[in-house]
Simulated assay, not measured.
Amino acid sequence: MKSIYRIFTACALALTGGTACIPAQAADAYPNHPVRLIVTSAPGSGLDLVARAIAPDMGKKLKQSFVVENKAGAAGIPGTREIVASAPDGYTLGLVSSNHAINPSMHPDLPYDTVKDITAITLIGAVPLVLAVPANSPYKTVQDLIGAARAHPDKINFGSAGLGSALDVAGLMLEKMARIKFMHIPYRGGNPLMTDLMSGQVATAFLAVSTAEAQIKAGTIRALAVSSARRIPSLPAVPTLAESGVAGYHYAAWIGLIGPAKLPAHVAGLLQKTVHEVIALPDVRQQFAVQGFDPSGTSSAEFLETLEREIASTRELMGKH
């Protein structure tokens, strides 16, 4: 009995420290039937594409099907509610996005606790954003845009995919760090935003690289900067916001794997280890590259640290809306 206790204690400690420990007997028992992988957004979204990129190889490695189910709408709240209400046995998991950290600021009556009601398994990676303007915009650089916004506070319109979206948060960060103020126009999703940006009805917007790249290369919109800490391979000529004079700016929309609270340490550890192996596969990395997705893979502790930090910073930003 003592040896079993020591194994599970060691595994719990290893998981929080970032190293998965999986007792042989426990690992063999899971999974023994298909696993539901709930995606808290619509089919075809960035979140959905990541889920469908990793699910087949997770199934191969664990010898059970990982069945992707889309539970879209309401900023991912219904899908997350289903994940946290499920049995903590590893057979219902979910992919969540940065909205998971934003929702507490937008919805104080959430039907779950964003941190306490989940098991944070691993951050899978991040989607860098690009600050773009119409192709015929007079703003050629980030400093052109900032200068105009300072000269005309609340006059230059900034579009986002909705109030409280990751694109909105990226804009609020830019306002705070550059000491400017846009006129915010929230859209119902990224497609109408892109349409109005291309036509010039919106002066500027942050967009996911996967959404914007084709239009940038086609010349229908112009990229001013990317939001990530370093330049991205698919747009090597586009500087970062930090390089463009907004010192310290760094933001990306992340995607993470979660389960309900109290998921056994050996199950969470096995899932974490498997995800890290899958996102290192060349074919998966190729799929990610097409989407502009930057894979990482973190420990549970690192995921929780990111989540708690972004909940706090988003609350501060949203207070300025």
Rank of each mutant, 00 (worst) to 15 (best):
V39L: 11
A126V: 07
I102V: 12
S227N: 03
P264L: 10
A51S: 09
V290F: 05
L172D: 09
V202R: 06
G125R: 08
G189E: 03
T114G: 13
A12R: 15
I255D: 10
P104Y: 11
L95M: 13
T141S: 15
P111Y: 12
L163K: 12
I221K: 07
S165V: 03
K116I: 08
P43G: 04
P34V: 00
G125D: 05
G245D: 02
F8D: 12
I38Q: 10
S45I: 08
P282H: 02
A14S: 15
T141G: 13
G189R: 02
L131I: 00
A14G: 15
L163H: 13
E243C: 07
V50T: 10
N103S: 13
L13D: 11
S65E: 15
K273S: 09
P104C: 04
G44E: 09
L131V: 01
T40M: 07
L15N: 13
G94T: 07
V238P: 03
P233N: 04
A87W: 05
P236G: 06
K181F: 02
G164P: 08
A261S: 15
D283T: 15
G248K: 06
A74Y: 13
A252D: 09
P34L: 00
K176C: 04
M173E: 11
D283I: 07
P138A: 03
L197E: 04
I255R: 02
Q272I: 00
Y30R: 09
S98V: 03
M318G: 12
A85I: 04
V290T: 10
T119Q: 15
S45T: 10
I77A: 13
R36C: 06
V209R: 01
A42V: 05
A132K: 07
